[in-house]
Design a binder for these strands. Structure first.
Length: 174
DNA sequence: CCCTGATTCGC
DNA sequence: GCGAATCAGG
């Protein structure tokens, strides 16, 4: 990939918006975060006023999330319909049948309140970040939970519970 | 450990 | 000019 005018323009825009180098690299595609940083320096636009790093943001989310909601283990409690993002909680109300993910969820999950996700992009996932899909796979804002995984497995403690499916329910991915 | 940007230096 | 390797830091 080479730095076309269009890609440079998008780089400037995203960098001005405060996205991290790795996030920009992910969106541009075909370049590493090092390449992005290098280009930023060559363009001499390294300074950024904002302190809006992903890590800072997630810390704030986690802090505010602890105040408003009860124990999220209300799977069998079908009365919690309220979705309140201001307390850092969100509800999974979409039926996921995505083929873009290795782990297919066949059952419709509703009325389950979980802590808000970090919403990481695919390339930002590591062995210890939750890989639960968040959002519409067909929309540009689709990404992954990104919370720290629990004891084991590909999902965080909240999503791993949702992800469980008996072998009898397992379907072949078409 | 996973992430951040900064810098260096061979290509 | 480019970006991988490396550094320093949260």
């Amino acid at each position: 990939m080479n730095w076309t005018d269009e890609r440079v323009e998008q780089l400037k825009k995203l960098w001005a918006e405060g996205l991290s180098a790795s996030q920009i690299a992910a969106q541009l595609g075909g370049v590493s975060r090092n390449a992005v940083i290098g280009k930023v320096h060559r363009l001499k636009l390294s300074g950024r006023g904002k302190t809006t790093s992903t890590q800072t943001r997630s810390k704030k989310v986690n802090t505010s999330a602890s105040s408003g909601h009860r124990s999220a283990g209300s799977l069998g409690h079908m009365s919690s319909r309220v979705v309140n993002r201001s307390v850092g909680a969100t509800a999974l109300q979409t039926e996921y049948s995505t083929d873009l993910v290795t782990h297919t969820v066949t059952k419709t999950v509703t009325d389950v309140v979980v802590p808000i996700s970090r919403r990481l992009e695919l390339v930002q996932l590591s062995e210890r970040t939750c890989k639960w899909p968040v959002g519409d796979p067909l929309q540009p804002d689709f990404n992954f939970c990104g919370n720290d995984v629990g004891d084991s497995g590909p999902y965080c403690t909240y999503h791993s519970r949702l992800a469980y499916q008996p072998a009898s329910d397992r379907r072949r991915i078409r």
